[in-house]
């Protein structure tokens, strides 16, 4: 393998991995704080895809404004989904499976609703960044490099909020013990909703960055959901930092697996790796800081 090829594989792995990290860290945040496994997380991505299509293509807004509007929109949707379909179930004794079932139902409902509303076609979004970056002998479109940089910035911002602000401390306190948090005056219910919004913002960021590359369709989120789950488990269930690290790791594994097996097997490699890790280390690869 030449060094050019090697750099290219690493870059590709990091770019794919940054999307996995965005999706996975959102799922991990929600799971870590509320113990809810949200199967409709992919559909938040899909809705963000249609959001950016609406704002930037149909309405012709500037990219930055369209992206911000989209993120606000999915944050609102995330909060509504949590309030309406998940919060009422949390009081039940067997809520864990009820919530899984409801979010699976919601996921397929939103997918088919999108299919009925917007049709089955794959709709393109123009590149936000033009031009090609040249690093040594490696040529990479700026759009792809931007995915990595923006994803890192957004996750960094999120980590800053989680570990350096009052809101972050409130979220981490709720994650440790929701009842005790309630006892010291933290409105756990509202915190849960806020966490869903943040998680939706992370998914939305991923979808916006992806939309020019993979096109927008009712199924655009579904394929990332299982990858997101894999990342969450590899990173140690519910650990934000672990999920980010595992996201990049999974991206690199897939990228390098392509040089050994044909690309249609790369997902098989990724999922076999997941099951193998669970067999050997059920607690995940990375020790988390919690929340």
């Amino acid at each position: 393998m030449s060094s050019t090829q090697f750099i290219e594989l690493v870059l590709n792995g990091l770019i794919t991995g940054s999307i996995y990290a965005l999706v996975g860290s959102g799922i991990a945040l929600v799971y870590g704080t509320t113990r809810v496994l949200n199967f409709a997380h992919g559909e938040l991505m899909m809705l963000a895809g249609y959001g950016v299509l609406l704002f930037s293509v149909t309405l012709g807004w500037p990219v930055l404004l369209a992206a911000l509007a989209t993120i606000l929109l999915v944050m609102l949707l995330g909060a509504i989904i949590q309030r309406v379909t998940i919060a009422p179930l949390m009081k039940r004794e067997d809520w864990a499976f009820n919530v899984v079932a409801v979010t699976i139902g919601l996921s397929i409902f939103l997918q088919s609703a999108a299919q009925l509303i917007w049709g089955e076609q794959f709709q393109g979004v123009p590149y936000f960044f033009s031009g090609v970056a040249v690093i040594g002998d490696v040529r990479m479109p700026w759009q792809r490099i931007a995915i990595l940089l923006v994803a890192l910035a957004v996750m960094g911002l999120c980590a800053l909020v989680l570990f350096r602000t009052r809101l972050g401390r409130i979220i981490r306190a709720t994650a440790q013990d929701a009842e005790a948090a309630l006892a010291v005056g933290i409105p756990s219910g509202l915190v849960h909703t806020a966490v869903f919004s943040i998680s939706a913002a992370l998914a939305g960021t991923g979808a916006i960055l992806l939309s020019p590359l993979v096109t927008v369709s009712p199924w655009m989120g579904a394929s990332y959901l299982l990858k997101g789950f894999a990342v969450v488990i590899l990173g140690g269930l519910g650990s934000f930092g672990g999920a980010v690290a595992a996201g990049f790791l999974l991206g690199l594994i897939e990228s390098f697996s392509v040089s050994f097996v044909s690309s249609e097997w790369s997902n098989v490699v990724a999922f076999v790796f997941l099951i193998a890790v669970i067999w050997v280390r059920p607690e995940g690869l990375f020790a988390g800081r919690g929340a």
């Binding site: 299982l226 789950f229 894999a230 969450v232 488990i233 249609e264 098989v268 999922f271 997941l274 669970i278």
Partner: peptide, 29 residues
Amino acid sequence: FPILRIRSMPHVAIVTLAFAEIVRLVFAN
């Protein structure tokens, strides 16, 4: 076997889901 080692519901759900995806991809490939 891997499921025996874990008691958390999310692990069980995700492992079995990933297994189904592997099976689908193997038959497709």
